[in-house]
Each structure stands twice: as structure tokens, then as C-alpha cells.
Nucleic acid binder design. Structure first.
Length: 614
RNA sequence: GGCUCUGUAGCUCAACUGGAUAGAGCACCGCACUACGGAUGCGGAGGUUUCAGGUUCGAAUCCUGACAGGGUCACCA
């Protein structure tokens, strides 16, 4: 049984026997003992003062005595200011280590028969992926891995926003100005190629708009509509959308293309398929570089019509209501969520309609027990409403929905803005960290001696570790500052630091051929650093569970860093291969193996692989 | 403005979900091991946890209010 349970139950029994009252397990606070005090776990005795009618110190003393006598694993205790510090017997830790060291399944919970569907990434197809997508992708992938580790079957899906005005802009610009260029003819990565034409459209449009502002029609409008104290450029900025929709030639052409697309015009559809195929080929490369994959892709071009039947049924059931202009709404004001449109007056769908339909399709496809949507926090409101509607509709899966909301990624000098060209491109970033890892590797003797192929492999491992760890160590809910300079750091609280602990262990293990496991039991002089390492390894399953419960890989990243840190400390404090006794050597090899095993497992949950050398 | 999230060392982040003297990394200063891999270890300096009240044995954590910042309030997605 878990030591925390043993101690909790022991404490409950102690209170029952000493003071004659039952205490619920969740009323007993049990925490790891702070490093500056003697002991492994600490019981906080303040909550018992009312029951016992004694001072905390006296209670702690009595509980300590009881636990020492009645709980086998408790080897000693001390009391400081009402805190009862318990020391667990060395035998307990050694037994645990012996069982764990070679257990490759440690930390993998048995299948629980439940299925979870994780949606992540969900890009638009008009331009390449950027830093924001990277955070999304890493979170989605990692949460998938974490759920697999706690026993779920996981289905990873993506909804591709492959239609709409944005892709039409890329299509139109390429058609008008592309002169037959292709990714192949230019050598540009295909998704970047499509993005290039999206940017081209925006530039042409901007020029057109600027020209129009100076034209007679523009000046006339300005004179009519601009209010007194508004500066001219502010007016034009605000008017931009209206201009696009009502006056712009390019805007007209793009909208015309969208209409043709909707009418299934063959030429437009062919162009659309061609450009999207380029984008997908490009995305695939980026996914590959990040080491992620999907089990099923949903396309918005298939799903955008979905959901209407749900609205219809819901209208009959009185969940939705129709306004005079024919639009359909849901009233969620009692939930403090306002009224929300679910069908336009012309009967077409909106985003919400699609999401209702998509949820239903996914349920039909996979019948998951949970669905996790990895989407940025700018859509918090949308998902609150979506989940609420599904509840009102009494969908059977409505209780298993979760929005993994994550914060924006900002740069040191502020937000990423596509208009100002400050967006950090995903491919560039990955290439940069790998290059930096290579450069730093070349400063080391061991690295220089490897073949170029091996060097490249290691640079991939190390560079990507730096990038992924840098992003995943921040709690998902918080917005984060991404400093490109810091992201390629490989010292301190970083992915490569953790890898280095693993590599050191592999190096030691390579030099030790024999199996000495049997002798480890004879080691009796466990140091504080050694005990602490075992305890941390012991805490891995609990951390894993916390990460799953909170939908947050940051717990795993933090754990791996701390474990690596403890190992580095242990490594400099103790000799392993030249240990003072055979028993010590055997024990430390065992401890090293167990550490490496857990580090590898944990980092894999973050999508970070471990090299043998670096 | 309504709703919502956030505010911790110069900077980037923690704090086991209410527990002991708020911890790490970076940057800065000073050390260590002729090394089982130095992408390491140890030490120093750095804090009124934005502010003001409250709740209680105990608050960075919960409540109220202010201040500052982000997000969102489309018949866009």
C-alpha cells in the first residue's frame, strides 16, 4: 500500500484511539517534510486541537508515539512547533528501490477501460504554423501521453480550418500574381509558399485601400463619416472591414471565390485542393519535426454544415428560440452567459453550430468518455457556452468535456503581431534551436569525436528538448513570455539539463558490466541525498496523477527537473563505480538505473527523447 | 463599460491546492572536483508575494474593495 495512505490511516487510528473521535482522511494534512528538518513526512496537528483539547506539541508527541509503536514503516519521529515529522525506515525505501529499479512499467497505470479524445493544433490552412501553434501542439501531445500513462485509451484528433475567406485570399493572390510558380519551382516549403500569397494579398489590398482613400469617393466618405476629434488614420483603420466588404475590388473577388467554393465550382475547388495539399505537405514536416501525430483529422469543409439538425430538434424541445428575422438563439442569461446566436437569419451555420455538430460526430465515431479541447484562452467564453448548450441538450457525453485553456505566448517586447511581422515561425524556431544545440555541442570534446550523423541526431534531441521544456514547464493556464535567447539555453532549468543527468547515468552503466543487484540489500549507510532520491522516485505516480487531474504537463516538467537536480547532487557527492563497498556500489547502480528509468519515462510524456550521449 | 483571467527576486518561472524561515533557474559575485561526462556541484547577494481591509491557530493561496495588465463581449473562426 502507498506510504501516504499507510500514514493517513495510521494517524486516523491514532486519533480514534487517543481521543475517541473519527477524522475523515481528507482532514489529515500530510506533506513531505521540509528539507531543513529531520524526517520524510509531516503531519500537521493543528486541526486536532479541538478534538483533543490539548496543545499542538502535546498532540504531536502522542501521535508520534502511537505511530512509532503501531506502524511498522515509521522508524522515528520528532516534533517542532506542532508539526510531527515522521521518518520512514530505510528498509522500506530500499525494498521499494529494489522492486522499481528494473521495472520498465513503473509509472504506467493499468488500462482503465476509458477513452479520451484530445483535439489539438487545429490550424488555418492559409499560412504556416507559428509559436502559438507550438504551445498548443506540445500541450496537446503531452496531455495525450499523460492520459495514456494513467490508463486511458487516447484518440488524438485535429480539426483543420480548411475553408473560408482566408484561404480564398491566398488562392486569389496566387492565381492573379503567381505566374505559375509552385513550391517545387521555387524550392519554398509548401505551407510557407501558400502563406507567401496570403501576405501578398494583404499587401495588394493595403495598397488598393490606400489609393482609394485618396480617391474622390474616399475623400467624400471621409468628409461625411469622420467625427470631429477622431484622427484620420484611426477612422481608416476602423473602416477597413467595411471597405473590404463594400468597396474593394480585391475583396469582391475573394468573396466571389468563396461563393463559388460554396457552390462547388469545379475550377475553384480544384485550385483549393491544390493549395491545401501544399499546406498539408508542409504541416506534415512540422509535425514530424515536433514528433507529433494524429489519429484522425476532421475538416471544416466537411463539418461546417453539421449541427443544423441539432438546432432544429432543440428548437422543438424549447431549448432554442427564433427571433423575428428568423435567426435562432439560446438564452443563457440565467447562467450569466448572455444570449447566443446558433443559426443565422439566412439559416446558415455559425462556429457554434459546427462545434455542436462536430461534438456529436465525434461521439458517434469514438464514443469517448472524455473529450479535451486544447484551445487558447481567448475562446474561454465560446467553450463555456458550447458545453452549457450540450448540457441543456442533455447529450450523454456532456459531462466529460474539458477545455484545456492555455495562455498567450508573448515576446519580451510584447505580443506577436502578424501585421508587424513579429510572429515567430515554427519551422524557423525549430531549426534555430537545433542549430544552437549543434554549435554548443561542438564546444565539447566528446561531441566532436562523433560522426557528423551522430552529431546531427544529438543536436535534434538536445535542441528540441530545450524548446519543448522551455514551453511546457510553464503552467498551461498562464500566459508566458517567450524569449528566443533563453529558449536555446541548455544550462540550469532546461531540457538538456535533465538529459544530461540521464546521459551521465548511461555513461556509468556502460562502464559497469556485472549485475550486482543482490548485494544492494546489504547497504546500510544511506545518505540524506540518497534517501531523498528514492523518495522522489517514489513520488512519480502521484505527480503523474496530479498532471492528469490538472490537464497540465508543467507538473511533469517540474518533477523531472527536480529529480535530475537531485541526481546531479548525488553524483557529485558520491562515488558510484569506486564506491567504498560492493554493497554501496550495487545500491548506487540500482538507484541510478531507477532514476534514469523515471527520467526517460517522464520526459517522454513531454515529447522529449533521451540521447545516450550528448 | 459588462463578464473573465492574471499580478511572487532585476528577468523567466515554482510553491504538493490553507501549513514551518516563500523556493529554483538566468544574470551578478565568490568557490569546488586533475573529472564514474563541467550542458555539473557548493556558497553569497537579491522579497512588505501590487495595495488596503477581512476570515483563523496559520494566508502568496480563501472573501471584499482598489490599482495595473491580458482576454472576450460579430448573423468571424
Amino acid at each position: 500500500m502507498d506510504i501516504l495512505n499507510i500514514l493517513t490511516e495510521g494517524t486516523a487510528a491514532a486519533v480514534r484511539n487517543l481521543y475517541g473521535e473519527e477524522v475523515a482522511a481528507d482532514k489529515i494534512t500530510l506533506t513531505p517534510t521540509r528539507r531543513e528538518f529531520e524526517g520524510d513526512y509531516t503531519v500537521v496537528t493543528f486541526p486536532f486541537t479541538k478534538i483533543a483539547k490539548k496543545k499542538p506539541d502535546a498532540i504531536a508527541e502522542e501521535l508520534g508515539q502511537y505511530l512509532l509503536q503501531n506502524v511498522e514503516e515509521v522508524a522515528a519521529f520528532n516534533v517542532i512547533k506542532g508539526f510531527l515529522n515522521l521518518s520512514i525506515s530505510a528498509e522500506f525505501w530500499k525494498n521499494f528501490l529494489a522492486e522499481t529499479a528494473d521495472d520498465k512499467q513503473y509509472g504506467q497505470l493499468p488500462a482503465n477501460g476509458q477513452k479520451v479524445l484530445v483535439e489539438y493544433c487545429s490550424p488555418n490552412t492559409n499560412k504556416p504554423l507559428h509559436l502559438g501553434h507550438i504551445r498548443n501542439i506540445l500541450l496537446g501531445w503531452s496531455v495525450s501521453k499523460i492520459y495514456e500513462a494513467v490508463g486511458y485509451e487516447v484518440v488524438k484528433v485535429q480539426i483543420v480550418n480548411d475553408r473560408g475567406i482566408a484561404i480564398c485570399k491566398s488562392m486569389l493572390a496566387w492565381q492573379k500574381y503567381g505566374e505559375g510558380e509552385t513550391p517545387a519551382s521555387t524550392g519554398i516549403k509548401p505551407d510557407h509558399f501558400v502563406g507567401k500569397w496570403y501576405v501578398a494579398f494583404e499587401q495588394k489590398f493595403k495598397q488598393e485601400y490606400a489609393d482609394w482613400q485618396q480617391s474622390e469617393a474616399g475623400q467624400k466618405l471621409l468628409a461625411e463619416k469622420k467625427n470631429e476629434k477622431q484622427p484620420e488614420d484611426a477612422f481608416w483603420k476602423k473602416y477597413k472591414n467595411t471597405y473590404f466588404n463594400e468597396h474593394s475590388t480585391l475583396g469582391n473577388e475573394a468573396r466571389d471565390m468563396l461563393l463559388k467554393w460554396e457552390a462547388k465550382d469545379e475550377a475553384v475547388r480544384n485550385l483549393w485542393m491544390l493549395m491545401n495539399s501544399w499546406v498539408y505537405a508542409g504541416f506534415e514536416k512540422t509535425f514530424e519535426a515536433l514528433g507529433v501525430s494524429f489519429d484522425k483529422l476532421y475538416y471544416e469543409s466537411d463539418t461546417y454544415i453539421l449541427g443544423k439538425d441539432i438546432i432544429e430538434q432543440g428548437q422543438k424541445d424549447g431549448i432554442f428560440f427564433q427571433k423575428d428575422d428568423g435567426s435562432v438563439w439560446i438564452d443563457l442569461t440565467d447562467k450569466k452567459l448572455d444570449e447566443k446566436l446558433v443559426l443565422r437569419s439566412d439559416g446558415t451555420s455559425v462556429y457554434m453550430t459546427q462545434d455542436l455538430g462536430t461534438a456529436q460526430v465525434r461521439n458517434a465515431d469514438f464514443a469517448p468518455d472524455k473529450m479535451i479541447y486544447v484551445v487558447g484562452n481567448e475562446q474561454d467564453y465560446h467553450f463555456k457556452v458550447l458545453f452549457e448548450i450540450l448540457k441543456e441538450l442533455k447529450e450523454p457525453y456532456a459531462d466529460g468535456l474539458h477545455h484545456l485553456s492555455y495562455g498567450m505566448v508573448n515576446l519580451p517586447d510584447g505580443k506577436m503581431k502578424s501585421r508587424e511581422g513579429t510572429v515567430v515561425d515554427a519551422d524557423d524556431l525549430i531549426a534555430e534551436v537545433v542549430q544552437e544545440a549543434h554549435t554548443q555541442g561542438m564546444e565539447r570534446g566528446e561531441f566532436q569525436e562523433l560522426t557528423p550523423e551522430a552529431q546531427n541526431d544529438i543536436a535534434e534531441f538536445v535542441g528540441k528538448a530545450a524548446l519543448k521544456f522551455f514551453i511546457l514547464r510553464v503552467k498551461a493556464e498562464k500566459s508566458m513570455v517567450f524569449d528566443p535567447k533563453e529558449s536555446v539555453d541548455m544550462q540550469g532549468q532546461t531540457g538538456p539539463y535533465v538529459q544530461n543527468a540521464y546521459v551521465r547515468i548511461q555513461s556509468v552503466l556502460r562502464k559497469n558490466a556485472g549485475d550486482l543487484t543482490a548485494q544492494a540489500a546489504d547497504y546500510t549507510e544511506m545518505s540524506a541525498v540518497e534517501t531523498s532520491l528514492i523518495q522522489q522516485i517514489y513520488g512519480y505516480p502521484a505527480t503523474l496523477q496530479t498532471a492528469a487531474d490538472n490537464y497540465d504537463p508543467a507538473f511533469i516538467a517540474d518533477y523531472c527537473y527536480n529529480l535530475a537536480k537531485s541526481y546531479h547532487r548525488f553524483y557529485t557527492d558520491h562515488s558510484i563505480l569506486k564506491a567504498e563497498s560492493e554493497a554501496a556500489k550495487a545500491f548506487r547502480l540500482q538507484l541510478s538505473k531507477a532514476t534514469a528509468n523515471v527520467l526517460e519515462k517522464g520526459m517522454l510524456l513531454l515529447g522529449i527523447g533521451m540521447p545516450e550521449r550528448m
